[in-house]
Simulated assay, not measured.
Amino acid sequence: MSYDRDAVPANLPGLRLLPWEGEGGKPCFLSADRTDGTGGVLSRLADEIEAEQLCDGAEVLKGAVAVLDDGKAGEHALRLALRATAQAFGNVLRVADSRGARLPVTECAHEADLRRG
């Protein structure tokens, strides 16, 4: 699984980007119309998976730093560390985009977006 930010439509109100892919690697979305703040089963599952992805990312980062600090690490170890880091980074970007899209838009942020064009 790899995350392509360009394949995800920008800011779809009422839809949550999920931390997994659909058929053909396409992004999955969940309608988040619950007003009671509890979320549904899929929303809670997505929260759990996102939390795991963030923890995994922290562990992958530690491992990558260890490989980089090892002057004897060979090409294979470096490639494995880079592949794991790229995967974890993609997951973290997806989580950030999903959570960022659900933040309330303030008037100042809206005006800044308008100025940027």
Rank of each mutant, 00 (worst) to 15 (best):
M1W: 01
S2M: 05
S2A: 11
Y3A: 00
Y3R: 00
Y3M: 03
D4R: 12
R5F: 03
R5A: 13
R5G: 11
R5S: 15
D6Y: 11
D6L: 08
A7T: 05
P9C: 07
P9S: 06
P9M: 06
P9A: 12
N11H: 09
L12F: 02
P13K: 08
G14N: 08
G14F: 06
G14P: 03
L15G: 00
R16W: 14
L18G: 06
P19Q: 13
P19F: 14
P19D: 13
W20D: 05
E23C: 04
G24N: 10
G25R: 03
G25E: 08
K26G: 10
K26Y: 02
P27D: 05
F29Q: 11
L30E: 15
D33P: 01
R34Q: 15
R34I: 01
D36W: 04
T38L: 13
T38A: 15
G39F: 07
G39D: 06
V41G: 03
V41C: 05
L42D: 13
L42R: 13
S43P: 01
S43H: 11
S43V: 00
S43T: 06
R44L: 15
A46G: 11
D47Y: 03
D47L: 10
E48M: 14
E48N: 13
E50L: 05
E50W: 05
E52L: 15
E52M: 14
Q53C: 07
L54A: 07
C55W: 12
D56R: 15
G57D: 01
G57N: 06
G57R: 07
E59D: 11
V60N: 03
V60E: 01
L61W: 07
L61I: 04
K62P: 03
V65H: 12
V65Y: 02
A66P: 06
V67G: 05
V67Y: 00
L68S: 13
L68I: 05
D70F: 00
D70I: 02
D70Q: 01
G71A: 12
G74V: 02
E75L: 10
H76I: 00
A77P: 00
L80P: 01
L80I: 06
L80R: 08
L80V: 06
A81N: 07
L82D: 06
L82M: 10
L82K: 11
L82Q: 03
R83N: 06
R83E: 10
R83Q: 11
A84C: 05
A84K: 12
A84P: 10
A84S: 08
T85D: 00
A86Q: 14
Q87I: 00
Q87D: 09
A88S: 10
A88V: 01
F89A: 11
F89I: 03
F89C: 04
G90C: 07
G90K: 04
G90W: 05
G90F: 01
V92H: 10
L93K: 13
V95N: 00
A96I: 04
A96F: 07
D97M: 11
S98W: 02
S98H: 09
R99E: 09
R99V: 12
R102S: 14
R102E: 10
R102A: 15
R102N: 08
P104Q: 15
V105K: 03
E107Q: 04
C108L: 14
A109G: 09
A109C: 12
H110V: 00
E111R: 14
E111V: 02
D113S: 08
L114E: 08
L114I: 08
R116T: 03
R116F: 03
G117N: 15
